Simulated assay, not measured.
Amino acid sequence: MTRHASCRCGQLTAACEGEPVRISVCHCLACQRRSGSPFAEQARFPADKVQVAGKSKQWVRAADSGRAVIYHFCPDCGSTVWYQGGPMPEAIAVPVGAFADPNFPPPRFSVWEERKHPWVAVLGDEVEHSD
């Protein structure tokens, strides 16, 4: 199976082969700012299973862990389509919203919950929660 993600204007794309190795929801302040939402959901795939096409700009920041994270976004519409680094540097993370697929599998991990908005609940018996 290949899943296709893209920016809002469609210029920057990522084709992700196979199943994600991790689907998570992050409540850290940086993810809140990146997504414009109280949390961000991302799917990570092995780097060799992701084919990126189109122009991108990148921005690097140090995560709360101290590791570098490199974000790749469309220079035309500004959407982040993929990033690499942080807790799984060998994988490429794609924001789940970039797939525009309401049937995308649910997250199995919810992290940085000490920064979670009190009205947010990540449901599911198989979800691992961490602070």
Rank of each mutant, 00 (worst) to 15 (best):
M1Y: 15
T2R: 03
S6P: 01
C7A: 07
C7N: 12
R8T: 15
R8V: 14
C9Q: 10
C9G: 01
A15S: 08
V21T: 13
S24M: 09
C26V: 01
H27P: 00
L29G: 12
A30F: 05
R34S: 14
S35V: 00
F39D: 08
F45M: 05
F45I: 08
P46Q: 10
P46W: 15
P46E: 10
P46S: 07
Q51H: 14
V52E: 02
Q58I: 07
V60P: 08
A62T: 10
A63L: 07
A63N: 02
G66K: 06
G66C: 11
V69A: 11
Y71S: 15
C77T: 09
S79W: 07
T80Q: 08
M88T: 08
P89G: 00
P89H: 04
A91Y: 05
V94Q: 04
V96M: 02
A98M: 15
A98D: 07
N103V: 06
N103R: 15
N103E: 14
F104K: 10
P105H: 02
P105G: 05
F109M: 05
F109S: 12
W112H: 13
E113R: 00
E113V: 00
R115H: 14
H117V: 01
P118R: 10
A121F: 06
L123Q: 13
G124K: 08
D125Q: 10
D131K: 09
